[in-house]
Structures are given as structure tokens and as C-alpha cells.
């Protein structure tokens, strides 16, 4: 399988603090890769570099799109989204005072192009596009199991459903690679199981790759094809889930020296 995303020698500094040190990571087409590591390991920083919220100090991020591969390091966030990377946030960042469907429709923004004139005069192209947006958004909402909340304000949704809505909104941008930042945080075991199913379903249906940060090891082990482990801004291990759970460096990073058998 080809690499969809290759990250080589990525470095990110905050003042004197090196948050990411010479990080290499490759995401293959259609795989689910879990990124784990203790708190403060630099996982979310890595996401922010990928999505353009931070500008990495050095290193290369290369995305392979159907149009060819290109370097996306340092591009502004909305351009990167258009190239095909969508994300969710660790603390849910929905548009709270917009309805569920409007949240998802906002995600369609970068795949549509009605301008101000189109919005005012509602030409045939604008109407057609708007209908398409509504239809596509509703489909995605149904997939995420949120159909009964369509016209509800996002802030009124239960926590678990808000997490799903965030994934739905990210999917609306038609990504090649979906980044999920702790999607199971704060969910109970039933909701986590549903999320597990949703994520695999998304991968199979849309044929996209998923990179997720997660602390829930049960979810990580059951869902991911490969796992990468970070500690202090460095990648310390990478491999299949069962390999990782036996890896002594990983155990040391999580539990300390004395637990290494």
C-alpha cells in the first residue's frame, strides 16, 4: 500500500521548549493508525502542525492526493482542509448556536463556491448547489445517527452526540485523511462501542485513512491497524497493536522502569 501522508523530520518549538523532535510518521491509504502516548507527549501539537494551526519549525509533511503528492507544511488551515485533511478537536469545538445540519453544511463550504451574488440572486447554479449541500449533509447526519436532531441547536445535544456531530462535520469536507483527537474522551462504554463501529464504518464507506489520538486502550486495540507511540515529542515505537502492548519501551514510558518485565 502507498503512503497517503508522510511526515519526515518534523520539528516544532515553543520558545525554548521542543514539543516535537525529528518526528517521522507515515499513514497508509485506508488504514486506521492510532497515536498514543502519555499526556504532554506532543500528540495534539502534531495534529496542529498537520492541520496548519501551527507552523512547524522544520521538517516536511507530504500529502498524496489523486492530483499528485505535495508538501503541505506551513499552508494555512483552510487550504489544508481543501487538500483533504479534516479534524475534530480534543475539547469539542462545534458551532454551538447553529443547528446540527448547519454545522455539517458549514463543513461543505470548501467543496462549494456560491458567492455573494449567487446567494442574493439565487441563480440556477446556486440553487442546485444549495440543494446538493442540504442533501449531502443530511446523508452524513444519517450515517452518524443524528437524523432526529437535524434542526436542533448543536449546543443542546448530549455530549456523546456532539462528538459524533463533530466527526460528521469533518466528514462533510470530503477528507482523504481524518484526524480524530480523543474521540472517546468522556464517553461511557456503550457510547465508545458505538463510536468504534462508526469509525470503522466511515473508513470502509468513504475509503479514507484515519489517524486518531486516543487514551482508551480498549478502543485503540480493537480498531487500529497500526499504533504509533509518542513520548516527549519523539516517536518511541510503531507497529501492530499486539506488538505495541508487549513493547518494553512503551511500558517504560507509561508505567516506569520497574514494570518492565
Amino acid at each position: 500500500m502507498d503512503n497517503l501522508l508522510s511526515v519526515n523530520g518534523l520539528i516544532m518549538d515553543f520558545g525554548g521548549l521542543r514539543a516535537l523532535e525529528d518526528l517521522d510518521l507515515h499513514v497508509k491509504k485506508g488504514e486506521i493508525l492510532a497515536l498514543i502516548g502519555p499526556n504532554g507527549a506532543g500528540k495534539t501539537t502534531f495534529f496542529n502542525c498537520l492541520t496548519g494551526i501551527y507552523r512547524p519549525a522544520a521538517g516536511d509533511i507530504c500529502l498524496t492526493t489523486p492530483g499528485g503528492s505535495m508538501s503541505i507544511a506551513g499552508l494555512p488551515p483552510h487550504v489544508i482542509t481543501k487538500k483533504g485533511i479534516a479534524r475534530t478537536f480534543q475539547n469539542i469545538r462545534l458551532f454551538p448556536n447553529m443547528t446540527v445540519i448547519e454545522n455539517v453544511m458549514a463543513g461543505r463550504h470548501c467543496r462549494t463556491n456560491t458567492g455573494i451574488a449567487g446567494a442574493i440572486f439565487r441563480g440556477r447554479a446556486a440553487v442546485k448547489e444549495e440543494l446538493e449541500v442540504v442533501e449531502r449533509s443530511y446523508e452524513i447526519i444519517k450515517k452518524a445517527g443524528l437524523a432526529r436532531y437535524v434542526n436542533e441547536l448543536a449546543k443542546n445535544l448530549p455530549y456523546g452526540e456532539q462528538r459524533r456531530l463533530e466527526i460528521a462535520r469533518a466528514l462533510a469536507t470530503e477528507p482523504l485523511l481524518l484526524l480524530l483527537d480523543e474521540p472517546a474522551a468522556g464517553l461511557n462504554s456503550r457510547e465508545t462501542k458505538e463510536l468504534d463501529m462508526l469509525i470503522s464504518e466511515i473508513r470502509d464507506l468513504y475509503k479514507i485513512s484515519i489517524l486518531l489520538i486516543e487514551h482508551d486502550m480498549k478502543l485503540v486495540m480493537s480498531i487500529s491497524d497500526r499504533v504509533a507511540v509518542m513520548d516527549y515529542g519523539k516517536k518511541i515505537a510503531e507497529g501492530r497493536p499486539d506488538e505495541i502492548s508487549r513493547n518494553s519501551t512503551v511500558i517504560k514510558a507509561y508505567l516506569g522502569e520497574e514494570f518492565v518485565a
Binding site: T51, I53, P76, P77, H78, T81, K82, A86, R87, F89, R93, L94, F95, P96, N97, M98, E102, M105, A106, G107, R108, H109, C110, R111, T112, T114, G115, I116, G118, A119, A126, E129, E130, V133, R169, A170, T173
Partner: peptide, 22 residues
């Protein structure tokens, strides 16, 4: 419209708005 939703998204959350490709 598409523009109106982008404005609303901007009001609601600037970071998320950018991450959604706006």
C-alpha cells in the same frame, strides 16, 4: 446561504471555522 453560514461559523468558533476549510 453558504456565505451566511461561513459568517455564523466565524462568530461561533474561529479555529474550528478555519479547520472546516473556511
Amino acid at each position: 446561504s453558504r456565505i451566511g453560514r461561513a459568517w455564523l461559523a466565524l462568530r461561533e468558533d474561529e479555529t474550528a471555522c478555519e479547520a472546516m476549510g473556511i
